[in-house]
Amino acid sequence: MPVARSDTLELRSAADVVSVRQAVRTWAIEAGFSLVDQTKMVTAASEIARNTIDYGGGGTATLELIVEGPRRGLRVVFEDTGPGIPDIQQALTDHFTTGNGLGLGLGGAKRLVNDFNISSRVGEGTRVVITRWK
């Protein structure tokens, strides 16, 4: 899938989550997303960005404007080198949490995007890819 443009942001602190939200908003507008679609993508990115910091110990978010034929979309790749997730199915279950959150982050984010991909290796890190098409 051709990537028209990409940019990588650091995720270290709570303020970086806000920066990612704002960047995703700007890119979603550029990709021609409706207001509801922008809001869903920004909210999904916010959930995963917070996970990257809280559970992954920080990492990066890479925004990609993608073009596939006439379709345009926005993809965000979150990567950390944290402890990893031993049981991904369990982590995707609503209301499951190992922290003090609501346990809606991963499962909720998955519902807000068109494509959701998560891979994780214990001791090596986690990679979450979310994509939403216009």
Binding site: T43, R111, L112
Partner: peptide, 14 residues
């Protein structure tokens, strides 16, 4: 609450 926020919140499961 903005309508787009309400729609997103419900889909998020909150």
């Amino acid at each position: 609450m903005q309508p787009a926020v309400a729609i997103t919140l419900v889909e998020l499961g909150l």
